[in-house]
Amino acid sequence: MRNRPLPARAVLAAAVLCAAAALLVVLLAPGSAPDDFGARPTAPPAAPGPEDRPRAAEDAEAAGPDGSPGTPAPERSPAAPTAVTVPRIGLDATVEPVGVQADGTVEIPEAPQAAGWYRFGTAPGASDGSAVLVGHVDFETGELGEFAALYDVRRGDTVRVDRGDAPAARYEVTARAVVDQDELPRELFRRDGPHVLTLITCAPPYDEEDGYRNNLVVTAEPAEG
C-alpha cells in the first residue's frame, strides 16, 4: 500500500508540533525573575526636624454657626494618569486610580489590560516623589497581565504615561530590581525627592499558600526634553 507511510508522517508532524507547543509554554512561563539592572534614585538624606515635619499647617475653615461648608481643599492631582505604554515590549495598559485594601496593601485592578495608580502618592508628570503604577503579572485564568511584559524591559526603554488634562509624561527606564514582597522599600512611595515613575508587579518564587514572594520593581526617570 503506497499510502501506508502517510499516517506515520502525520504522527511525526504532530509530535514535532507538540514539542514546539511545549517549548512555547515553557518560554511563556519562565518561572524565574529577570535580572536586576541600574540603581534607583532616592531622596536626599532627610533631616527631619520640627521645622519640616510635619509641614506647616494649613488653616482650613470649617463650618460657621450656620453650618456653611468650609473652603474646599485644593485639587491634589488635576492630571490623573489614564494609560501607560512601553512600546518596545508591547506594554499597553489603561490606568485607574487605586487606594489601599483593608490589609494595607495597594489595590490592584482586576482587568488584565488595567494598571493602577497609587492615588495617595505622587502623580506621573509631577516634579517630586515617586509616582507608583501597579499591575497584576497574571490571573487565575492563566492569563498574563500587561505588566508581565516588564520582565523584558531594558535600560533606555521609553515609557509614556497619558494624562487626563495634560500632555503625556515621558520617561526612560533606568533600573529594575527584584525585592522581597514583605520588605518592599517604603522609599518607593516617597512623596518628595527626585521625581521617578515606579512600575511594580509580582515576581517568583511562587508559594502555593502565599502566592508570589517577590516584587519586580522597574524605575523610570523623566526623559530629557
Partner: peptide, 13 residues
C-alpha cells in the same frame, strides 16, 4: 505591600 499576582503562570504555570 503590592500583591500583584492572582495566578501562577508567570512563576512557571
Amino acid at each position: 505591600g503590592v500583591e500583584a499576582g492572582a495566578g501562577d503562570t508567570q512563576a512557571g504555570g
